[in-house]
Amino acid sequence: MAASLAVDGAVAALLVWIAREDGLRFRISNRLVLALALGFPAACLIRGQASLVVPHSLFALAALAVLFVGFAAGICGGGDAKLLATALLWIGPEGTLVFAVLLLPAVLAYALGARLGLLPARCEGRRMRIPLGPCIAVAWIGVIGLTRLLR
């Protein structure tokens, strides 16, 4: 139980760092995303959930393929796509609906804050771009908290 709490704390700390960096610089560190992705199998072993590694990995790879299409179309950034796929690796298909329900208001709140000039955004012509890292981090930490609450 303590090891699982330590894993959740470490993931949350990395997510806060990623959110801060993306909010300030519009960049998501590949090293931090890789650390999260590589940490998943270890976390599964620590929690006694090794059976989740393969199905969650396949789910995340499928999501990554779809997200790269979104990146190619200019809908999301490459770092956003990688971080979102990594979130889905950890959360898996069983937690994706909760994650999506938490992600939507986070994105809407950030977009509103950016429109009001309270949060950083980039304007490209008539289009406003917001960093998705903070929104993904908030939703992912929310899933971690809800999962802990329901255990």
Rank of each mutant, 00 (worst) to 15 (best):
M1I: 14
A3Q: 13
A3F: 09
A3G: 13
S4M: 14
S4H: 10
A6L: 15
A6N: 11
G9T: 08
A10D: 07
A12Q: 08
A13W: 00
L14H: 10
L14R: 14
L15D: 03
L15V: 06
L15A: 08
V16W: 05
I18P: 00
I18M: 05
A19P: 12
R20N: 09
E21A: 12
E21V: 13
L24Y: 03
L24K: 15
R25W: 09
R25T: 15
R27S: 15
I28D: 03
R31C: 06
L32M: 14
L32C: 10
L32T: 10
V33T: 10
V33G: 07
V33I: 12
L34S: 15
A35K: 01
L36Q: 01
L36H: 06
A37M: 05
L38N: 09
P41G: 01
A42Y: 04
A42I: 14
A43C: 08
C44E: 02
L45I: 11
L45H: 11
L45P: 04
I46G: 01
R47L: 03
Q49I: 00
Q49H: 07
P55A: 01
P55G: 00
H56I: 00
H56G: 02
L58Y: 02
L58H: 07
L58P: 09
F59P: 11
A60I: 11
A60P: 02
A60F: 02
A62N: 04
A63K: 07
L64R: 11
L64Y: 12
A65C: 13
V66M: 14
V66K: 08
V66N: 08
L67D: 02
L67E: 02
F71D: 04
A72Y: 07
A73C: 11
A73W: 06
A73T: 06
G74D: 01
I75D: 12
C76V: 15
K82T: 01
L83W: 02
L83V: 03
A85M: 08
A87L: 03
A87C: 14
L88E: 00
L88V: 06
L89Q: 07
W90S: 03
W90L: 05
G92L: 05
E94R: 13
G95L: 01
L97V: 12
V98T: 15
L102P: 05
L103I: 09
L103G: 00
L103K: 04
A106V: 01
A106N: 04
V107W: 01
L108S: 10
L108G: 10
L108F: 06
A109E: 11
Y110M: 10
G113S: 11
G113N: 05
G113Y: 03
A114S: 13
R115W: 09
R115I: 06
L118Y: 06
A121S: 15
E124Q: 11
G125T: 00
G125A: 04
R126Y: 02
R126W: 06
R127C: 14
R127I: 12
M128Y: 05
R129W: 09
R129L: 12
I130E: 10
P131H: 10
C135Q: 08
A137S: 07
A137K: 02
A137R: 01
A139M: 04
W140Q: 10
W140Y: 13
I141Q: 06
I144G: 04
R148M: 14
R148S: 15
L149T: 09
L150W: 14
R151G: 15
